[in-house]
């Protein structure tokens, strides 16, 4: 029997709300740390320096070849055997960041490779040193290609965080399980949790659309009418 009353009480249960907040910040922080790491790994894999290429390649191979769940348990429960004891949240962050960065590095690599060679040549011909070529010319154009799959990864990560409940991080799923234990309304509790996830991914979808429009500047541009040109010129003056 379905109880609407139980369902609604789960929906505004502070236990779940706090759990949802943990899920959001865990995802955001993991992504924010994983992305720069992914750029470094992608650069390492494209490097001419062979040892660096081997190390970064091996890292991606290891992280993508083993389940995150196993990695998390090793980090939290296994490493203390070697004397390395990490807190719950630290363990979760280390696992999520290391794992996510490996996947993101592939997205970064594909993005960088998608920028035509002529772009970096034009930048070099102007006299830009290598890091400026990368930061000013290659990266902004790579981002345009990277944002859709990156957004996809963020969406996935929101849900992947449920795995850290296994090492007792009190994110949304674990909090829901606690709440359910008081009245055993499993269906109502987990439906409420599912709605939370749905709300979070939907909101993210809107953010992603805005991001895509922002990094796509110049690319959707169509030959403009006189009026649009004048507007663009005006906009320039007021900037």
């Amino acid at each position: 029997m379905w109880s609407w009353e139980a369902f609604f009480s789960f929906l505004h249960d502070p236990l779940l709300l706090q759990g949802a907040w943990t899920t959001v910040w865990l995802t955001a922080v993991s992504m924010a740390l994983a992305l720069p790491l992914a750029v470094l790994v992608a650069l390492g894999r494209a490097s001419g320096f062979v040892p660096l290429r081997l190390v970064t390649g091996g890292y991606v191979w290891l992280m993508r070849g083993t389940p995150l769940l196993v990695q998390l348990v090793i980090i939290y429960t296994g490493l203390p055997q070697l004397g390395l004891r990490l807190g719950v949240i630290t363990s979760a962050l280390v696992g999520l960041v290391l794992n996510e960065a490996a996947y993101l590095s592939e997205i970064v690599r594909a993005g960088v490779l998608s920028v035509p060679r002529g772009q970096s040549e034009a930048a070099r011909a102007l006299g830009m040193p290598p890091w400026k070529v990368f930061r000013v010319v290659v990266m902004p154009q790579a981002l345009r290609v990277m944002v859709p799959p990156l957004g996809n990864s963020f969406n996935g990560l929101l849900k992947t965080t449920t795995l850290v409940s296994v090492i007792s991080v009190e994110e949304l799923l674990r909090r829901t399980q606690f709440a359910v234990q008081t009245n055993f309304r499993v269906l109502e509790g987990l439906t409420a949790a599912a709605l939370y996830y749905l709300a979070m991914t939907t909101l993210w979808g809107l953010v992603q659309r805005w991001l895509e429009a922002r990094v796509g500047r110049g690319h959707q541009a169509r030959p403009s009418s006189g009026r649009r040109t004048r507007n663009a010129a005006l906009e320039l003056e007021t900037r």
Binding site: G118, E121, A125, L126, G127, P129, V137, Q141, R144, G218
Partner: peptide
């Protein structure tokens, strides 16, 4: 390469395919 970049400032180059930066006005 970073030092060669400094030397390139004296030389301008125009390419067959223009190679303008598409994300800039």
């Amino acid at each position: 390469e970073s030092r060669i970049a400094l030397q390139r400032r004296r030389t301008g180059m125009v390419f067959q395919q223009f190679n303008l930066f598409p994300n800039m006005t």
